[in-house]
Simulated scan of single mutants.
Amino acid sequence: MQITRQADYALRAMIYLAQMEPNRRASTSQIAGDQRIPPSFLAKIISQLSIAGLIHTSRGARGGVSLARSPEEISVLEVVEAIDGPIALNECTDNPENCPFGPSCLLRPLWCDTQAELVNRLRSTTFAQILPKQGA
């Protein structure tokens, strides 16, 4: 399993926004330049994050992008799922009928447990936890 490049860019954009002072906005060109994200790719990502309710966008001279909630309230899982959809290590984890071995499959419990651990870890990790500690 590998996080898509789009999800990685989305996470980097969110970290950039989380590091800003509250009530500040960043232009997409600032984010793209500082995070080395192709601007056209970032535009699609910003749209998806906005639809998911994770960021606010505004146009105009004083426009830009900002977090919709505080970094303490936004999990890594929310961002990954906004971009890539639900996490699935194997097609059988969410739909056991897709396994040709059915209930006798010896690997499905491992995939399900591993997926649950990953989802729980990403759900419990907020952007505030990722940011460097003040004074560190």
Rank of each mutant, 00 (worst) to 15 (best):
M1S: 14
Q2H: 04
Q2W: 04
Q2G: 00
I3Y: 11
I3H: 06
Q6S: 13
Q6C: 05
A7L: 10
D8M: 10
D8E: 13
Y9S: 13
Y9K: 12
A10H: 01
L11D: 00
L11G: 01
A13H: 02
M14S: 01
Y16P: 00
Y16N: 02
A18H: 03
A18S: 15
Q19I: 00
Q19H: 10
E21R: 11
N23D: 15
R24T: 14
R25K: 15
S27V: 06
T28R: 15
S29W: 14
A32M: 04
A32K: 01
A32C: 08
A32Q: 05
G33L: 13
I37Y: 00
P38A: 12
P39T: 12
S40P: 00
S40Q: 09
F41H: 13
F41S: 15
F41P: 02
A43F: 02
A43L: 05
A43E: 08
K44C: 01
K44Y: 00
I46V: 15
I51T: 14
I51P: 00
A52S: 14
G53I: 01
H56C: 13
H56T: 14
T57P: 00
A61G: 12
G64V: 14
G64P: 12
S66A: 13
L67N: 08
A68Q: 11
A68E: 11
A68H: 03
A68R: 05
R69S: 07
R69G: 01
R69W: 01
R69F: 06
S70E: 11
S70M: 12
P71N: 06
E72T: 02
I74H: 10
I74V: 15
I74W: 09
V76A: 07
V76F: 05
L77S: 12
E78F: 06
V80H: 04
E81L: 09
E81C: 12
A82Q: 04
D84G: 09
D84W: 01
D84L: 03
G85C: 04
P86K: 14
I87M: 01
I87F: 03
I87Y: 01
A88S: 15
A88Y: 11
L89D: 10
L89T: 15
L89C: 05
N90L: 06
N90M: 03
E91H: 07
E91V: 09
T93M: 01
D94V: 08
D94Q: 14
P96K: 07
P96W: 10
E97C: 03
E97G: 05
E97N: 12
F101W: 10
G102P: 03
P103W: 05
S104E: 13
C105G: 11
L107D: 08
R108P: 02
P109T: 04
P109N: 04
L110M: 03
L110N: 02
W111I: 08
C112Y: 10
D113N: 10
D113S: 15
D113P: 00
Q115M: 01
E117W: 11
L122Y: 10
L122V: 02
S124F: 13
S124T: 15
A128K: 09
Q129W: 05
I130T: 04
L131F: 00
L131G: 00
L131Y: 00
Q134G: 03
G135S: 06
